[in-house]
């Protein structure tokens, strides 16, 4: 793919991925066929900031985990009242990188 397209993608979507993934994404995008561009450019990514807000507001119901697609963990959090509040607090700090990891998994379906 074009360097210009790839750099545009990286610039506009950098906040959705872990910084250590960005380089690999860039390398991979450069080798990917141009026909995949429409799908890659319109892929639905979750905003880490939104999930942090949800985690703070409704974390002990596990809604943050449901939103990013970790349904199993969401049910676990819900049933334990957010792990007696402890897990809910721990997730305030983990949810952003968990969201970015999930975004990476979503993008990977199109990259390989």
């Amino acid at each position: 793919m074009d360097t210009q397209k790839v750099d545009m993608f990286i610039m506009s979507n950098a906040k959705f991925f872990e910084s250590h993934h960005l380089n690999a994404i860039r390398e991979r995008l450069l080798t990917v066929d141009d026909s995949k561009w429409p799908m890659i450019s319109t892929v639905q990514l979750k905003d880490p900031t939104t999930s942090l807000i949800i985690s703070i507001l409704a974390g002990s119901l596990g809604i943050d985990r449901f939103i990013i697609g970790d349904t199993g963990l969401g049910v676990g959090k819900l049933l334990t009242c957010g792990g007696l509040g402890i897990w809910a607090i721990v997730d305030w700090f983990l949810i952003q990188s968990a969201t970015r990891e999930k975004n990476m998994q979503v993008l990977q379906q199109f990259l390989y």
């Binding site: 002990s60 119901l61 819900l78 049933l79 334990t80 009242c81 957010g82 007696l84 509040g85 809910a88």
Partner: peptide
């Protein structure tokens, strides 16, 4: 009380009483 929501708001959460 283990429940965060109940401690803060006084309203029980869906899984209170488990």
């Amino acid at each position: 009380e283990g429940c965060f929501i109940k401690q803060i708001s006084g309203v029980p959460c869906p899984t209170c009483g488990t």
